[in-house]
């Protein structure tokens, strides 16, 4: 006999299956290189944003410097392969390890802070890392950009077309979502959700809040690092411009738009806000304003994001049905 939590888990897995199927079938019907390219970026963004949702949506810890972790993964992959001839997979792994270490070192003192202070600390740290990307020219080539980054491959199979990379990225994204869903509904997930709301109560129930905050922080950094490495081997060119505070804000906007406290919200937000600018191509210069307006509008009218809106709609329908 299944209890309702197990049912909920099964349902999440079913969603994941549908999602994976839709993603898998997409390129079969849509052959446009351009759209595939957009979807590759959607996949990369999904990975970062889902990790961010775990941190900010579930555990309630603000991070305004996540672009830095993305950048660390990206640059580690880039620099190690171009300048030191590393195998891309080794560089990938190195990126994860480096990012995790940095996240740990920053996380331990920062996560002792609350609210604004934590936001500021992550903000400051993000900026410092970005400045390092710009200034450490001997390593990163600074603003002129790191070029000729090799692509990535398994055995002899090279992921060098949009089509192949699409599947490559989305396998990672699907796994990322799978892991996140598992975390949310688990002892650790409950500990995180508990400390989000009532940190004192959680501590009194035996949750080592300091430890879990750092763990989820590092985990979300690892997600960002993976996304960064995938980004590097796709566009084979890196410049510090891509890892600034505005990108951290974009991650935030994507998460908020889709629904912060919801893994699927992260995915929805990432995909929709990666696709959106493409529709606004004609209004290239308006994109900044539109993001601003979106952020404001979402905060005012649907603070739980799109999925939050959907959820309340479903709840209302259920309630009406019960009353009938």
């Amino acid at each position: 006999m299944e209890n309702f939590l197990e049912k909920r888990r099964k349902r999440q897995y079913q969603y994941l299956l549908f999602f994976a199927l839709a993603i898998f079938l997409f390129p079969v019907f849509v052959r446009s290189k351009y759209l595939l390219n957009v979807m590759v970026f959607s996949g990369i963004h999904t990975i970062v944003v889902v990790g961010f949702c775990l941190l900010m949506g579930y555990a309630g810890q603000v991070s305004l410097g996540h672009a830095a972790f993305f950048g660390l993964g990206a640059y580690t992959s880039g620099v190690l392969t171009v300048k030191f001839g590393f195998n891309p997979w080794m560089a990938f792994g190195a990126g994860i390890i480096l990012t995790a270490c940095v996240a740990y070192i920053i996380g331990v003192p920062s996560l002792k802070l609350k609210g604004h202070y934590l936001a500021m600390a992550t903000l400051g740290f993000g900026i410092i890392i970005q400045i390092i990307f710009v200034q450490w020219r001997s390593l990163t080539e600074g603003p002129s950009g790191l070029v000729d980054i090799p692509g990535i491959s398994i055995g002899g199979f090279k992921f060098n077309t949009d089509f192949k990379y699409y599947y490559f990225v989305w396998i990672f994204a699907a796994v990322a979502v799978f892991f996140s869903l598992n975390i949310v509904q688990s002892r650790v997930g409950r500990a995180l959700r508990a400390l989000n709301k009532k940190e004192i109560g959680a501590e009194a129930m035996g949750v080592d809040t300091a430890k879990y905050k750092v763990q989820v922080f590092v985990l979300s950094a690892i997600y960002a690092s993976v996304a960064g490495s995938l980004y590097t081997h796709y566009i084979t060119f890196l410049s510090p411009e891509g890892f600034t505070f505005p990108f951290s804000v974009l991650i935030l906007v994507m998460a908020v738009f889709g629904g912060l406290a919801n893994i699927w919200g992260g995915a929805v937000g990432a995909i929709s806000l990666t696709i959106l600018p493409e529709f606004l191509r004609a209004y290239k210069n308006y994109d900044i304003i539109i993001y601003g307006v979106i952020l404001i509008a979402v905060m005012m009218f649907m603070p739980n994001g799109i999925l939050g809106l959907v959820e309340s709609a479903i709840d209302r329908i259920k309630a009406k049905r019960r009353a009938a």
Binding site: I183, S186, G206
Partner: peptide, 15 residues
């Protein structure tokens, strides 16, 4: 959540 101190699975187990 109350059972946290009596149980053990951590992040890797959950993932």
């Amino acid at each position: 959540v109350g059972l946290h101190p009596r149980t053990h699975s951590e992040i890797l187990h959950a993932i």
